[in-house]
Amino acid sequence: MWSHTRSLDVLLLVTTVAPAELVRVATSFGPGGSGDRARIARSAGLGVPAAYLAVTGLGVALVLSTGGAPAYLDLRAAGPLWLLAAACAGCALVGLEFVVGAAPRVLRGTRGLRLAVQRGPGGAGPAFLASIVVTAVAEEVLYRGLWIGTLHERLHAPAWLAICCAAVGYALGHLFFGGLTVVQKLLSGGAFGVLLTASGSLAVPLAAHLAQNLTVYALARKQASAP
């Protein structure tokens, strides 16, 4: 039987798909409108993590008010082997995303491709590091803890379906950065979901996500210092 609580659970999922798009909407009302990509990029460094924190915080508050937090929000220690596996997976996902990103150019016959990462408008400084760390934490709480927890535990969806839905939501959350990024993040989101359900601890996909983002940060620093 469909209940008021289930309706709120579905509403939670629908309204938290792409917090970063709030930045695009907010900046579209300023000078230059939505076509001012430089201004939107400058706003992203602060706006994207702020949007994720706000949306995730509201999502957690809603879930707590309608029946308690899903077990997948548990950050209990997962053991050193799980954390090591998570760190390795996070680093490997950087390479996988590069392969996906390079595939269209390879198919067009482009040669001499170099690994490059997206950086914040202020470069690869402390602000960029803080932004990607905060965003990673908020994304894992939102898409893995809340999304998979809500779908699997509260709406009784199979684990594989919950993982897939959360991966799609996570990928769509990167529309702000372009269509190719959505495809890349679909794969990463699936991997993070598998790590969560296999380990039972949100700490594991969070460790993988942080390892991925810190690897990106290290590459961005190297890229910035290259002649």
Rank of each mutant, 00 (worst) to 15 (best):
M1C: 09
T5V: 15
R6Y: 01
D9S: 08
L11V: 14
L11H: 07
L12N: 07
V14Y: 07
A20R: 04
L22N: 08
R24S: 14
A26M: 11
F29E: 00
F29A: 15
P31F: 06
P31D: 13
G33Y: 05
S34Y: 11
G45A: 14
A50D: 09
A54L: 14
T56Q: 07
T56W: 03
T56M: 11
G59T: 08
G59E: 08
V63Y: 04
V63A: 12
V63N: 01
A69K: 04
A71L: 11
Y72C: 00
D74I: 07
R76E: 11
A77L: 10
P80L: 13
P80Q: 06
L83V: 06
L83I: 11
C91T: 12
C91R: 05
C91G: 14
E97L: 12
A102E: 06
P104Y: 05
P104F: 04
L113C: 05
R114P: 00
V117I: 08
P121D: 12
G122F: 07
A124Y: 00
P126D: 03
P126T: 10
A130S: 10
A130K: 00
S131E: 10
S131N: 07
I132T: 08
I132L: 13
T135A: 12
V137C: 10
V137D: 03
A138L: 09
E139G: 05
E139V: 05
V141T: 08
L142A: 12
L155V: 10
W160D: 10
W160M: 10
A162S: 15
C165R: 02
A166F: 07
A167G: 13
G179I: 09
L180S: 09
V182F: 04
V183Y: 00
L186W: 01
G190W: 07
A191Q: 01
A191S: 08
S201F: 05
H209W: 04
L210A: 03
V216K: 05
V216W: 00
A218I: 06
P227W: 02
